[in-house]
Nucleic acid binder design. Structure first.
Lengths: 216, 216
DNA sequence: CGGCTTGTTGATATGTGTCAAGGCTTGTGG
DNA sequence: CCACAAGCCTTGACACATATCAACAAGCCG
């Protein structure tokens, strides 16, 4: 649970990245090249464009009043993000690795072939599912669900790289870094996954059944 | 946290209520009268209509694989619900008190004056905000946020009736009934709210500032 | 009245947060 | 090439919040 001392580690978004003015000035369907940690849009900025990940990956998060960062979603190649209800962003979007982002101004109305309603409804479905996970599952179950999610994002591969740090995972799952590390360790010692490579960011799923059984 | 024994108290949705066939047969803009606990739609049913609360209130929830019920949202007068990404409902909607529900078939496309995208985007914003609450706040903070939310739903009144049981509140906030009761008690002993009436379901907010300070 | 439902309270268990320390990898500068 | 510092990840000991289990009170309805 969140107690007092966490306000000390207030999260500060990267000051780099494009700003609102630049965004608005972009012609239709511009491609941005962004570096790890670089911002794509910021809270308070006008939400005038929609974005699609061409390559790489993005995190979208909010900062809570107590300074805590909560990651609402990760987006991978092909996925759209940046659609909001108001015309002002209430969250931040940043690359988590070298990425190409297509930016499409939302002026005038929906443009084929993208259907804004479809994007909104699928975002809604994902948000609702995540609510169940963060509200009702234990640490191990959350991490197991996360691993499956990442596998699915990699075409269902058994072996893949996590592009985000343990801190990102923790802020996504509503846990601490330590709890995430302990849950990964538990998956490893139970021979459900294997971890290797830089900072244990490569995952090899050994037992899909038991992994799926955890994400109940 | 959810552990084993909770599977024992699996939630069973009410068997009463309209079924898919009846729903589809309804002419445009039909009004349904529903009783407390009565279903409006069910998981697995075709999502062919959109619904608006005319009077009363509705809960929309999912049943998790472990049998636990999680309430995604409550809806009051004027609010729309039942919009999904697929054409099959993955959740349940039930009245929580005597209610009138307007049912509008979604055939053909969006009909003025309702804008499906607006409904979807505002649902998305709410879902994202709730994710922060259930993932990152303590029990007292969640209940404080809930009380403010219910006040807002009653036009910002300082005194109002909660239409739902403590169990509903618990399933909405991701807590147990006991934790909800203890949090209400804490709000009462701190003279932030007063509770009275049937099952302490009437709330009188005494100190809005301290209430708001909690929902930080 | 007696049984049922709903809400509250208490004692205890358990899971995760917190605090602290150490390992590993990477990068930098002598 | 090696020494050292900085990140990131992991592990351990402990604290603390909430779940669990149990009992009881209040209101409602037969």
């Amino acid at each position: 649970m969140l107690t007092t001392s966490q306000a000390a580690e207030r999260y500060r978004p990267e000051p780099n990245g494009i700003n609102a003015g630049e965004t608005r000035r972009l012609p239709p369907s511009t491609v941005l090249w962004v570096l790890p940690g670089q911002g794509i849009y910021r809270e308070g900025e006008r939400a005038s464009s929609l974005y699609q990940v061409q390559s790489g990956a993005v995190r979208v998060y909010r900062i809570m009043r107590n300074g805590h960062r909560h990651i609402l979603s990760f987006y991978g190649a092909g996925e759209w993000f940046g659609l909001q209800d108001g015309d002002i962003h209430d969250d931040f979007a940043e690359a988590i690795c070298d990425s190409q982002i297509r930016s499409v101004p939302r002026a005038g109305g929906p443009m084929p072939p993208i259907n804004l309603l479809d994007i909104a409804l699928s975002s809604l479905a994902i948000a609702n599912s995540r609510q169940l996970i963060v509200a009702r599952q234990g640490a191990l179950e959350r991490v197991a669900t996360f691993v499956q999610e990442m596998s699915a994002r990699n075409g269902g591969a058994n072996e893949f790289e996590l592009m985000m740090s343990r801190t990102d995972v923790a802020d996504y799952l509503g846990l601490t870094v330590e709890s995430v590390a302990r849950s990964f360790t538990k998956l490893r010692t139970r021979h459900i996954v294997q971890l290797f490579g830089h900072g244990q960011r490569y995952v090899h799923i050994l037992d899909r059944n038991r992994l799926a059984a955890l994400s109940t």
